[in-house]
Design a protein around this nucleic acid. Structure first.
Length: 225
DNA sequence: GGAGTGATGTTCT
DNA sequence: GAACATCACTCCG
């Protein structure tokens, strides 16, 4: 079931970030369908949060979309190279958003590899960590820039409505207990000073598709390839 | 596997 | 001209 607009038009981006874990992010771009489970998110609050691009009412051509109603895509280019995909939340006038940072791929893996320039064969069963199987290539979708590239998301999708047929999120009744969820400070926002300490980054515990997998993935995987 | 660093374009000072 | 919600590569162990 596609998440309805009401899901996004709620006031707390931190709560929405947590609830987006385990949901399926799906794109139908260039005639190809790609999808995966959201395993890592970050919340940004336009009113109170120095890390947010729209902090203190900052309003530019780039951030304008964040002031719209929830349920639209905010895509921007960072470091001149990477397109980062966010979902605008809250009602119009509040510049809140959730950054989707990593995905466990489930559909369209071949197309994702092509888009990523990873010609490596044998990415079979990436969600499984069985001894004896080759380790999946986490460079496919474990990080906000590479995830967008794998899904075909670019700045052309800035403002895209998630009720449409290009990018959307589905609830497939994959529920997570609190103990399955890791809550940590956000990544790469040291410039936000004290707000950099806010624990507004959520991820699925022990899921290897979380970005910088080595840092959060507990022991128990076989590191031998 | 960890530190260091270059790539690259838009936004804002 | 600096900074940037990143990534992949090198070098060193």
């Amino acid at each position: 079931m596609k998440l309805p607009e009401d899901f996004y038009r709620r006031p707390d981006p931190v709560q929405i970030s947590r609830e987006l874990l385990g949901k399926y992010l799906i794109t139908h771009i260039g005639g190809v369908r790609t999808a995966g489970i959201i395993v890592e998110t970050e919340a940004y609050n336009g009113r109170t949060d120095k890390a947010c691009h729209a902090h203190l009412g900052r309003r530019t051509k780039r951030t304008e979309i964040m002031y719209h109603r929830g349920g639209l895509a905010y895509v921007y280019l960072t470091y001149g190279l990477h397109h980062l995909f966010n979902i605008v939340t809250n009602e119009a006038g509040f510049a809140d958003a959730v950054l989707i940072r990593a995905l466990e791929p489930t559909e369209g893996l071949e197309e994702m590899q092509l888009r990523r320039g990873l010609a490596r064969p044998g990415l079979a069963r990436p969600s499984l960590m069985r001894p004896g199987l080759a380790r999946p290539d986490y460079r496919l979708t474990a990080g906000p820039g590479v995830m967008s590239q794998a899904l075909g998301i670019t700045r052309e999708h800035w403002g895209e409505n998630l009720q449409g047929d290009k990018i959307w999120v589905e609830d497939r009744n994959y529920t997570l207990a609190d103990q399955d969820i890791l809550q940590r400070p956000r990544v790469g926002i040291a410039y936000a000073q004290e707000d950099a300490l806010l624990p507004w980054r959520f991820s699925i515990r022990n899921n290897p598709w979380v970005s910088r997998a080595k840092a959060t993935y507990e022991s128990g995987n076989n590191s031998a390839q």
